[in-house]
Design a protein around this nucleic acid. Sequence first.
DNA 1: CGGTGTGAAAGTTTTCACAGCG
DNA 2: CGCTGTGAAAACTTTCACACCG
Lengths: 235, 235
Amino acid sequence: MAESRPQSLHPGDQPSDASVPKVVVSRLSLYLRELQRLEAAGQQTISSGQLGTLLGFSDAQVRKDLGFFGQFGYPGVGYRCDELIRAMRDILGTNQSWNVVMVGVGNLGQALLGYRGFGRQNFTIVAAFDADPAKVGQMVRGLMVQPLEQLSETVREQHVRLGMIVVPAERAQEVADRLVAAGVEGIVNFAPVTLNLPPHVQNVGVDLAIELEQLSFAVTSKLVKLAEPSPSPAE
Amino acid sequence: MAESRPQSLHPGDQPSDASVPKVVVSRLSLYLRELQRLEAAGQQTISSGQLGTLLGFSDAQVRKDLGFFGQFGYPGVGYRCDELIRAMRDILGTNQSWNVVMVGVGNLGQALLGYRGFGRQNFTIVAAFDADPAKVGQMVRGLMVQPLEQLSETVREQHVRLGMIVVPAERAQEVADRLVAAGVEGIVNFAPVTLNLPPHVQNVGVDLAIELEQLSFAVTSKLVKLAEPSPSPAE
DNA sequence: CGGTGTGAAAGTTTTCACAGCG
DNA sequence: CGCTGTGAAAACTTTCACACCG
């Protein structure tokens, strides 16, 4: 689709030798989200200043962040939305599809199984597990709930690389250990505990009560402004 | 419970003149979560080194972070769990209880209404709203779903200061505007859009697909380690 | 012009290292 | 002795400012 590119722009060109700060990666996701919205609204190009304003960042920050990965812009014009979206998805890894397993099919787990946003970014939940024998064998949102014993086999057969933990806090570490043993490379943990994981396994924690806690601090202390981008979490 | 305190420690003593970095506040929530776990397990005291190790931080970082708010430790001993928990909750504002409204009673909204973790940290969801007339009037997890028109009244009558947005992306900004008009001071936004809010309203965004995206980047780029604490999000 | 890409400066956060205390 | 609290140094991130491009 893109032909007359100015400098680099081809994937694989990424000068990602030095490690990129994690805060930059979290802003990348926000850029991508906004770009997708803009493109859907019919916008062809955008400048760093416009994109920054929409998200509450400076123009320089947008350009610096993108600069970690290559040169994507056209001087005097800005960035072409379609090209930048493709580049960002290459960087973030969501041009390829990802199979994900979910462990825990309680209220929250079931709600997440039905969440459409995952599929939109190329994540597919291919299997659901639960330790409760009463739940195993039931169909939940199109998936048959499997016993934890089957985790390794499913992860292997379906080429699963990511897992989500949606079990009570007391069970989370044990489940994490099983996911690691099964060969999963990254975990999103919704249980309110910090997991102890080997360093080669990535993880992000989402603690719903903590999000409210951060607000209660900000509101109480009349902080100028609490957060900006959408960072990540735990250990 | 605590009597022989060494230096300061009383709430209200907080030297919070200078603004505290937001990343420090997000770690505070993790410290608190871990301390509560330790206390429940019967541990009386803890050192900065132990606490840091459990969460993947250095001892110095733990001490520096706490240092923003006062002096809580006993040289040669560490911190008393009960005292530190109380101090952290005073700082974060969760020693007082908070009334919260939720807008959007879809799958995710209903699951969140049933989440026990909120109550444990003193947050109570006192009312649920939805724009869908078919949902209004129904009982969901003990709450009668109200029409959005009643938002302002309920917020006023129940002294609500925080709100959660759990509606589709297209509706999120409109709902945010209503929450702001109703006088809410902080918003947790689960919709995958950046909200445009007046500066006096705090907000935290939780985008479930973005959490997976961050993992896919980390896993793909074999990053040394993606995240540490449990930060927060959007604009 | 309007806008990118990027060194260099400014600002912020983390780590170091050590005096002081019980 | 073990551990806190904290200045000072190091590391990192953001902002500035400007050369250069179409």
